[in-house]
Amino acid sequence: MLQTSVLEGDRLALARLLTEIEADSEAGRSALNDLFKHTGNAHLIGVTGAPGTGKSSLVNQLALHYRKPPNGEAPRSVAIVAVDPSSPFTGGAVLGDRIRMRELSGDAGVFIRSMATRGSLGGLATATIGIVQALDAAGFEIIFVETVGAGQSEVEIAKLAHTTLVVDVPGLGDDVQAIKAGILEIADVLVLNKADRPGVEAAERALRGMLKLGHPTKRAFNHHGRPTVTESSDAELAVGDEWIPPIRRTMATDGKGIVELAAAIAGHKAHMEKTGGWQLRERARLQGEVEDLLSSELMSRWRSGLDDKDFQKILDQLVTRSISPGQAVTKLLKENSQ
């Protein structure tokens, strides 16, 4: 069985299992059932941001860092899942994230897998959760999930990851600020990559400004029994139980700022563990997972018990506006349960 070999560290078995999981095959499902008890040890790090911001280059640098920590810490094994969109027209995809990760090759402590979204709506492949579980069970201590930030996918990645990095670059312009405001909400750490480019200062100021909107740093403190209001000058301070996303400048092409970025990631993990946020996220993550599985299972069961003629009849009524979609659902559920 693939799952046994995966637990023994067989890389080809792992690669094949990932294919089964992607195909949502019986073998893949049953392996995931067996492997689940071996999961829960990895630190899952989501990396998202607009196309070309340097996500793959950053993951490459961070992985190099974890493989050879400069401060004498023990190296940690790293898995990388790089998700790219499938073409909606042909279903094909060019998955090019490995181009930036050539320095990681030849290291048995690293495993890189590219995957296409295969028509999943969110931009994050449906199978990503299963893939991550398999890599977790296989013993990888750090698991990166890289995904292009486009609409829904970053929300999904935030649900999947313990720590989410949102990557921005100078000079993307003000027109994308509206999108950024949404994406900022899911950031645990903000990375301002391509810091060698002009406009870093302005970009950082803009990010800080938006962070303040999302996370007002004015906090009431009961200091010596007397309520005072302090304005935190450093937006990076975690005040009480709240984590204020730090901003880290990087140059992913040569690795500048990576040590500081890794420290911010470690800081987020430590904060989550201290405040109980880690357990909360874990719980929410698993709840989301079960709900997703449940809804697709219920949907397919409902469909298999459905008489297509009845369905078409109801659709006819819907098209002629003699019933509403809400009434259609009521009817369908009734008919199906008979």
Binding site: L12, G92, A93, V94, R102, S105, R113
Partner: peptide, 25 residues
């Protein structure tokens, strides 16, 4: 890709070792 395949593109200057490793993963 246009024929519906998933193409893993690794870029320039790949050694045979890099290619075999990527093919496996």
């Amino acid at each position: 890709r246009d024929a519906g395949m998933e193409v893993i593109y690794t870029g320039l200057r790949q050694t045979p070792e890099m290619i075999a490793e990527a093919a496996l993963q």
